[in-house]
Simulated scan of single mutants.
Amino acid sequence: MRSIWNGAISFGLVSIPIKLVNATESHSVSFRQIHTEDGGRIRYRKVCELEDREVTSSEIGKGYEDADGTIVPITDEDLAQLPIPTTRTIEIVAFVPADRIDPLQLGAAYYLGANGVPAAKPYTLLREALKRSNRVAIAKYALRGRERLGMLRVVDDVIAMHGLLWPDEIRAPEGVAPDANVTVRDKELDLADALMDTLGEVDLDDLHDDYREAVEELIAAKTSGEEPRETAAPARSGKVLDLMAALESSVRAAQESRAGGSGGAGDAGEAGDAGDAGDAGETEEAEHAEVRDLRKKKTPAKKAAGAKKPAAAGAAKKTAAKKQAAKKTTAKKSTPRKRSA
């Protein structure tokens, strides 16, 4: 990987020569702007507004536009004379626990490599100190004409640095949260928890960019003169008005997906019966119990850990039988007896 910046890490009185390389890369498909009538490229030219002519890169400098529209020229010499101690140094200013860093601050990621044989020992020292302390280093550095904030942490056997936004660059979330007072019932929370448990975890390495792959297939087809393959648009459900129904349907769908088509129908039926029973006027306590039973159902990935599901299913059947018997008893009591003459 090509280094984009060379300097040193300042660790107290210790100086560690390093080289900075990008830790990430973009796989996005780039497009060019064209004239739709003839396919000609659309290019942008840099034109001086006063002289109305195109200028070269050597004629272009920097300027700051004041509030009244006045342009104040700023030269590279002006910027070079500013007292920035971090021009070629990543200056560590503190060591803090990793959870002190708000993820909103995280920016671009870089790898810091030891630059030369003499840098190997102090580089390893800093890396192992970060590992043993379970902390990250907060540092200041200058890159692309401005001073920045960074966080150093260990990734495998390498020190990585994340660019951080300055605290005053994080906007407060004012006016973003819902204004209305919304009350969430325990049963709704239980179903949301059941949905999260059913979806489980995912290996991030298994995730990929479906849209980019589709764009690449489209470009390949057009390049070879073939007709692009038509893809069916994903089915969009209508506006959901019943939150409970949406949650129950989501849990059933997730269970069926996890089961791979085997055993999913039974789970769906039991969940549907729970929803129907709730509509039939069961008490809130009974609803909570049914949702808790739903949450206890294990996903296929967890079935090998225990064989308690048959017992749970039996308990559910007994509970349903007791409810049915209770309903029949209530119906008998409400029926008036015939008096004998």
Rank of each mutant, 00 (worst) to 15 (best):
R2D: 04
I4T: 14
I4C: 11
N6Q: 15
I9L: 09
S10M: 09
V14G: 06
V14T: 13
I18Q: 11
K19A: 14
L20A: 13
N22F: 12
N22S: 15
S26T: 07
S28E: 13
V29H: 06
F31R: 11
E37Q: 02
R43D: 02
L50I: 03
E51Y: 11
V55H: 09
T56E: 12
T56C: 10
S57A: 08
S57D: 07
S58P: 05
Y64M: 01
E65M: 07
D66H: 14
D66F: 14
A67W: 08
A67V: 10
T70N: 09
P73G: 02
P73V: 01
T75C: 09
D76F: 01
D76W: 02
E77G: 08
L79H: 09
L79M: 10
Q81A: 15
P85I: 14
T89W: 14
V96L: 15
P97F: 15
P97T: 13
P97Y: 15
A98R: 11
I101T: 13
P103Q: 12
L106N: 12
A109T: 11
A109P: 11
A109Q: 13
Y110M: 12
P118F: 11
P118D: 13
P118R: 13
A120V: 13
K121S: 08
P122V: 15
L125M: 10
L125P: 06
L130D: 06
L130Q: 05
K131I: 02
Y141H: 06
A142R: 01
L143A: 00
L143G: 01
R146N: 03
L152H: 01
R153Y: 00
R153P: 00
R153C: 01
D156C: 00
V158G: 00
A160H: 00
M161Q: 00
D168A: 00
R171T: 00
R171V: 00
P173S: 03
E174Y: 08
P178N: 07
V184S: 01
D186Q: 07
L189A: 10
L191P: 11
L191M: 14
L191H: 12
M196P: 06
G200A: 11
E201C: 08
L204N: 15
L204R: 14
D205P: 12
D206M: 15
H208K: 10
R212T: 12
R212L: 09
E213I: 15
A220L: 03
A221S: 10
A221T: 04
T223V: 06
E226Q: 12
E226P: 04
E227H: 05
R229M: 09
T231I: 13
A232Y: 06
A232I: 11
P234Q: 15
A235W: 04
M244I: 04
M244C: 02
M244W: 03
M244Y: 07
A245I: 06
R252M: 09
S257F: 14
A259I: 03
S262M: 05
G264H: 06
G264Y: 04
G264I: 05
A268W: 04
A271C: 02
D276R: 06
D276Y: 03
G278I: 10
G278S: 08
G278F: 04
E284M: 06
E284G: 07
H288R: 12
E290F: 05
R292N: 02
L294D: 05
R295V: 05
R295F: 04
P300K: 10
A301M: 10
A304C: 01
K309L: 08
A311I: 02
A313P: 07
G314L: 02
A316H: 07
K317Y: 03
T319K: 04
K327D: 03
A331L: 09
K332D: 03
P336F: 07
R337A: 09
R339Q: 09
